[in-house]
Simulated assay, not measured.
Amino acid sequence: MEYSRDSLPPGTVIDCYSIIKVIGSGGFSLIYLAADEDTQDQVVIKEHLPKKLAVRDEHMQVQIREDSLRESFNSGRKLFYQEVKALATLRHPNIVNVRTFFLANNTSYLVMDYEHGKNLGSYIKKRKGYLSTTFIMTVFPAVLDALNLIHSQGKLHLDIKPSNIHLRPGGDPLLLDFGAVHQFPTTRSRQSAQVVTPGFAPVEQYYSSGYVGPWSDVYAMGATMRACIEGKPPPSAIERHAKDQMKPATEMFKRRYPAHLLEVIDWAMEVDPLLRPQDAGTMLDALVEYKGRPFETNSSEPEQNKEQAKENDV
């Protein structure tokens, strides 16, 4: 019998939650809107169901496509547990809140608070970029503050991109999808495989020998900010590493955005990890203090940036 990665039908009850509808999907999971049968609160449920590895049978049980894929399926399930563990230790107003975790249907489920709003990735596509300075300065300091907490606990997100940022009413952001979260590596050798999203992942995430760190999340933040302006993902870091033809934001968008903002984006997106801000806190400080990129030869630059930023915000 042929099986597909069918979603759970509306009305299905798992644990104490009733499925309302599918609201998202990825290569490794399905995302549902559901209701708590006791409180009637709406929640988001993430179901571990890797598209290439597993299917759902006629009894709604998840089955591995073939025995040779079992090890890969189990490895993916470990990453799913990792996301649960990471979120359970992170409490921040701009990080999605986890309610519970349970096992059912031969797979795993993560239950999170449901928040009204829209996805940043979809919003960028709809607006075709050129989001306002006010919007960017509302969203990204909050996300950077959340990321700073993650870094302060010795963790890395490693999958920051527009589709992993949810915008609540008023532009209040929520950082999503912690399935790629890793502890800081203590050595350059034997790095585990990384999630790679072209345009947003830095060059070090493409290689098992790459030395990832807070600077890797910083690159992805800069790329996400640039996508808000340009309306599309930047060129991949691999392309840039081979031959960097991406024009600096300070040149392309200087007539529409304040210098300090564009400098922070270019600084964060340096191909060489050593040339970037080394953590989210440093990037946050440069952004909110109107410092831009540090210039050793021009001590008056931050003050000039600050005045220009104020003019652009008006």
Rank of each mutant, 00 (worst) to 15 (best):
S189T: 13
R293M: 14
Q194C: 03
R293G: 02
W267M: 06
I229K: 00
R255P: 04
A201C: 04
R255L: 11
V203C: 01
L262W: 03
A193N: 10
E204R: 01
C228F: 07
A227G: 06
W215L: 06
D244F: 11
G231D: 09
P277T: 09
Q183N: 14
I229M: 10
F253L: 12
M269C: 05
Q191L: 05
S236E: 09
P233F: 01
K254Y: 13
L262P: 10
V212F: 08
L261K: 11
T186W: 01
R256N: 14
A201P: 07
I265H: 09
F295S: 12
A237K: 04
P294C: 11
A227Y: 07
F184E: 02
V264D: 09
I265V: 14
D279Y: 11
V288D: 11
R256F: 15
Q278M: 07
M283Y: 08
L262G: 11
R256C: 13
H182T: 07
H241E: 15
G292M: 10
Y207F: 15
T282C: 08
L261H: 12
S189L: 14
H182R: 15
Q205G: 08
A280C: 06
R240K: 15
Y207L: 15
L275C: 13
S236G: 08
A249L: 04
R256V: 12
A259C: 13
V212Q: 03
A249P: 04
R188H: 12
Y257L: 11
W215M: 02
P185W: 12
R293V: 05
A242V: 13
T282F: 02
V264P: 03
C228P: 06
A227V: 06
L287V: 10
S236L: 04
P198W: 00
P198Y: 08
P235A: 02
Q191R: 11
P202E: 09
A220Q: 05
G213E: 02
E239L: 12
G210S: 07
P248Y: 01
K247C: 14
E270M: 12
